[in-house]
Design a protein around this nucleic acid. Sequence first.
DNA 1: CTGTTAGCGCTTTCAA
DNA 2: TTGAAAGCGCTAACAG
Lengths: 371, 371
Amino acid sequence: MSRREPADPTHAGATADGEASVPPPSGPAGSPTLEQVAREAGVSLATASRALNGSTRNVRPEYRERVLAAARRLDYSPNLAAQAVAKGGSLTVALVVADITDPYFSSITSGVLHAAEELGLITTLAITERQPERESVLVRVLRGQRPKVIIVAGSRTGSAQDDELAAELAAFGRNGGRVALISQPSLPFRTVDIQNGAGAAALAERMIQLGYRSPAVLSGPAGLATARERTAGFVDTFAAHGHPVPEDRIIPGEFTRNGGFLAAEQLRRRGLSDVDLVFAVNDVMAVGAMVYLRDVGVAVPRDVAVAGFDDIDSLRDVTPSLTTVALPLAQIGRAAVELALRDDEDGADPARLPIEGAVMVRESTPPRDAP
Amino acid sequence: MSRREPADPTHAGATADGEASVPPPSGPAGSPTLEQVAREAGVSLATASRALNGSTRNVRPEYRERVLAAARRLDYSPNLAAQAVAKGGSLTVALVVADITDPYFSSITSGVLHAAEELGLITTLAITERQPERESVLVRVLRGQRPKVIIVAGSRTGSAQDDELAAELAAFGRNGGRVALISQPSLPFRTVDIQNGAGAAALAERMIQLGYRSPAVLSGPAGLATARERTAGFVDTFAAHGHPVPEDRIIPGEFTRNGGFLAAEQLRRRGLSDVDLVFAVNDVMAVGAMVYLRDVGVAVPRDVAVAGFDDIDSLRDVTPSLTTVALPLAQIGRAAVELALRDDEDGADPARLPIEGAVMVRESTPPRDAP
DNA sequence: CTGTTAGCGCTTTCAA
DNA sequence: TTGAAAGCGCTAACAG
């Protein structure tokens, strides 16, 4: 390849004034500074600043040109850290997710990134590796960046971890930061409130309509409100229709493909004789469960139906196609940054943005003949 | 929920000196500063700095305690931007990927995040949305953060875009930044060099061993070196064994599920009568192709075999399981940050870290009876 | 070991 | 409009 550092043939001479001692581009390291640009352009630091970043229309066009040219020549890149310290805040949004590898979170992340980019904000990402107790730690670290927004995507736990997170976030908010949560509205911050319970309930209704009567639930991590809400919404609805779900048909497990696999195994061990439907509280688990069932020769949906939650896009090609509750994940991410940034201080309570899921009935839960 | 801002009952009194005019925690906004902490602790700014962030063992334990206590009391969070400007560089790694929603990139991202976290670095993420020309733009923006490392994960194109990226990266490097690319070693920077050609060639060898003779290739975006290398490695190997692949059996398309789907459709339109194997240059496309084939009643692998590349974890449950070339994606991400940070300036050439793929033969390519 | 005092790069009054 | 100068919060000599 024909690449080599250009050696910058442009600026052979010095600037108008004879300041020969500080040749901008030959310094050992460090990006060119605004001051160098100013000198190179023959204007003051202030003017250079205004031309480059200040609100337009205050600097004489000619000067502006000169500054811009100088900046280009020196390959100037404004030091955002310096700007942040001078202005008292950075143009950054900090995002905390459980696992970037999980399509649920990567879709949300994608939404956040897009929204941020449109607003000229840079995004910082941190992951808890599915350990909720890390949320507050990470927020604490990220706070140091003085981001404009901190978004935490991940289920509340309802335990002390929530309080720690709240404390950290409150401190951030007190100092002028904006916050948005993506989860349950159980903390005093703006939150994109995913209607897990309602979604699961709606799914249950449909399943009942389709003729299902004795479901089992792969209920996810007991510690996560998201899992609990989905489980409860589903179970309660079945119960309300006269089909209570026995305790031993509710099997916890990780929010992962393996979690679903293992939970399904557990379920089978307990005997799924009369189980006609397995509801895994998220799609990834549902797929794990389907794989397990297939492995042990239980046909889906003939022997047992399966439903999930989330409508993960990359899972739309599983066979049979998966009945689920669709969530607009990318939109949720986008909504979170908008919600955080919104200026209205109308209601006293922190704003909630409810997001409804949409039941998608597919091949994994065909209509069932009444028994 | 029982949450309320704590109202901080701790600091009723003032500090030793009667500085009553600046009560730290009641200011309208802005995090407490080091100076406030110092004052609160009754020590100098410098001491506070040393106690909080400076290299240990220089501050009297008692003072250190006092400072730490004060910091905790005020809920102090060091301003990283200020630190960055004072130290002339931030503890940040900036990562550019094409699409965080693609498991290929989210896995790499995960690796980068883990490595960064272990090193106490914060990660900033930007996406090109699969537009290579955005790489240089994003790098330029990210440069402003004065990150310690910039990592660009994404195929080279071999066009002017590469040069723009190189220029931007060179400027960054010139100013002391570390760079790592994850792709082809065609630019003068350290790069995690994924052996696409070799991987595809190895796959082809195995396929030939298995009895395949007339493959078609869903070759991905013509503009991306990754796609070209994989295609060439595969095609050349078949040719070398006396089984040239006709031009019209090589069908470009996007690096996505839909890209694979559409390319497969295209392939069928051209007639896949005697095609015995479809090699999609990445797994996501392979799945798209399999779905298309299934939709039109072409059985995989009975009627035609399918192979992919990457070994995306979340795709391991497709049926039939997919033959592919496994890449240690998370490790690749981790390796990139380590490579960038490595201090040895041994060889004159920028360091290359070759990463080999491992052929995984699975159900989608069973042994084929000789024709 | 501690405090004083320059900066770091940039923004932003405040005069001119 | 422009420039001089005072910070922004923190670190790093440099003297005590």
